[in-house]
Design a binder for these strands. Structure first.
Lengths: 232, 232
DNA sequence: CAACAGGCTATACGCGTGTTCAATCGGCGG
DNA sequence: CCGCCGATTGAACACGCGTATAGCCTGTTG
């Protein structure tokens, strides 16, 4: 009644789920078992393992882009978390995280994709007056995106290496509740008590767009412990 | 003259370098070749591959702790970056990143370790008057650490999956220069233009320490796009 | 009805892995 | 000098992987 999907699609969805659950190194045979087919059939349909991964990337990119566009139109933020609320999308969310974890050029594309959308979100907030303007919106969005995604990725598999897709939405929401306090504080009251560092850096001749001049000009003041970059 | 290290140590250092360069999935035989020994000898000395990884974890934890303590005494911030400046420690820095990338419980321990030190750094800055006080220092340090480490990890292997340890220090410094602008701005001028969100959240009954009451009480205002958590 | 085509499976090959084992080497105490 | 014992090695084992191949089973077509 509700589902008579083609075998290709069934394989792709099984791959998406299994990759998300066990990581991108999940064996082909396991995916085959999940999709109730033989391992050879996957090769027959997708050519090779890498091609299958490519297909997963494509599908994921497509879904996230579509869904992000819908959310942008709706005007509400919170991407991955909100996306994962819909249980239907848990696998693609998990796949994104696994892809980020695996690294490589593909991960960069995902990040850039999210960063590009973050630019729009922040600009929208800026127009609405809730987000302070920046002298480098692109850079700010990039940094914010990398921090948000990175932090999420970092404490995601801290529990185990197996990701339970059924628990993922609840886990994301719980995590959101857990960190929203410090996060709100961090973004409401400046971490640094005065702007001397910022003004010093800005007057040192590196405009926002001008990245080439940002080399060793800043004398890197000694008195300040722990530039927030520093916990790393 | 300057070096007559035991074979165990030579193996461990080779493992550290190779794991850092190629990831924790690097084959034992490759490490053996680097250390000019046979693969069997590694097993003979360390028992198994996992034990070798355990030894690497231990060594890394020990070195970072010692060096972090020294830096804390010295009063200067910037941990991993500064550590990596000394070419000698490039391998342990790389190993930390690889361990974080691999995830698992061990990664959590590293993060917690760094977060614990971040608490001290921030407290020191707070006493010096350069860092604003927080109502949840532990939570703030945790979030800052996860963001810093996560962002670093996220765009680290974006170039390739092979990490060139010789280029790592330069790469870290370049990255630092690249993002210091938006970062300084982000931590000097509040991202959110007013504190209504924060006060609303705080008045919703969730004290800093009291995490259990932080469930779905906040009505999650509709007007604000992109809670900074949101770029993810 | 016969032949064909294609989705699909079972099996096998080649490779790389961690680990084991027997054998060899080398120094050191009895 | 003998004998032992740990360090060290190369070959072999067992296993899991991705992939190639040959065949089966079913529906369709001439």
């Amino acid at each position: 009644m509700h589902e008579m999907v083609s075998t290709d699609e069934r394989i792709l969805q099984a791959a998406l789920r299994r990759f998300a659950a066990d990581g991108l190194a999940a064996p082909l045979r396991r995916i085959a078992a999940d999709a109730d087919v033989s391992a050879g059939l996957i090769i027959h349909h997708y050519g090779s393992r890498e091609k299958l991964l490519r297909a997963c990337d494509l599908r994921t990119l497509e879904v996230t882009r579509r869904e992000k566009a819908a959310m942008l139109a709706g005007g509400s933020g919170e991407l991955l978390a909100q996306l994962a609320q819909t249980e239907k999308y848990a696998s693609v969310v998990g796949y994104v995280l696994r892809r980020l974890q695996a690294g490589g050029p593909q991960a960069g594309q995902f990040v850039d994709d999210f960063a590009a959308d973050a630019v729009e979100y922040l600009a929208e907030g800026e127009r609405a007056g809730t987000i302070s303007p920046s002298r480098d919106p692109q850079g700010r969005a990039q940094v914010l995106t990398e921090m948000a995604l990175g932090a999420l990725l970092l404490q995601l598999p801290a529990q185990r290496d197996h990701l339970d897709l059924a628990e993922l939405p609840g886990w994301l929401r719980a995590r959101s509740d857990r960190i929203i306090g410090p996060l709100l504080e961090l973004y409401s009251v400046p971490l640094l008590t005065d702007r001397t560092l910022l003004t010093a850096y800005l007057s040192a001749g590196s405009g926002a767009q001008d990245r080439r001049s940002a080399r060793r000009t800043t004398p890197r003041p000694e008195s300040v412990p722990s530039t927030p970059e520093a916990p790393s």
